[in-house]
Computed example of a mutant assay.
Amino acid sequence: MDTERLIMRRWRAEDREPFAAMNADPQVMEHFPALLTREESDALVDRIEEKFDEHGFGLWALEVRESGHFIGFTGLAWQTFEARFTPAVEIGWRLARPAWGHGYASEAAREAVRYAFGEAGLDDLVSMTAVQNTRSRAVMERLGMTRDPADDFDHPRVPEESGLRRHVLYRLKRI
């Protein structure tokens, strides 16, 4: 899939090194429970690719059209952990720091929404993040997603002692 400035594609072997660097960057991973090792990052790419094969969609690698640089991912992922709103398809993103502030997350997420409600035939999407993650929350709001504070939850995959356990949930329905 393409946007004006981005190419959204399946993952390539050469994406693994810059992705591992992103996952080891404390600023990129500020709202996640832990940094990832190279092995953990590579295993995540393997799981992402398996989900494409299983569902026909997933977390697309993002490439800046003009430069050809890999900058992260944006896409769709089934969430099946135990929560009152699951199973659900989440729209999510993670970008390298140099890609922040250029509108890439919103641009790619709009294309992922179009795909979700078009080719994938989904009726609704969710997005979630730690309460403190104002940058991701702003992307969710730019997409037209809405939040009901009654839907906020403690993420079961985040350790109880973590200050990141409390999450906000945003929703978007196909019109």
Rank of each mutant, 00 (worst) to 15 (best):
A83M: 11
G68T: 10
I71D: 07
E107C: 10
D124F: 10
T80P: 00
G103R: 11
F70N: 10
E119P: 07
G68E: 14
I71M: 08
D124G: 10
L95P: 09
H69P: 00
E107Y: 11
E107R: 06
E111P: 00
A108Q: 06
W93Q: 05
V113Y: 03
L95C: 09
Y115M: 12
P98Q: 04
A112K: 06
H102D: 02
R110I: 02
G103C: 08
A112S: 15
Q79C: 09
H102R: 13
R84L: 11
D124H: 14
G103Q: 11
H69M: 04
H102F: 09
H102N: 13
H69E: 15
G118N: 06
E107H: 09
T80H: 04
S106N: 08
G118L: 01
I71Q: 01
E82R: 06
E111M: 07
E82A: 13
G68Y: 12
R97I: 15
E107I: 07
F81C: 00
G121D: 15
R84A: 07
D123K: 08
A96W: 01
Y115S: 13
G118S: 14
Y115H: 07
A112M: 04
A116S: 15
G118M: 03
I71W: 05
W78Y: 09
R84S: 15
W100Q: 06
H69S: 12
H102C: 05
W78T: 06
W100C: 03
R114S: 14
E82I: 03
P87W: 02
W78V: 07
E82V: 13
T86Q: 03
A116Q: 13
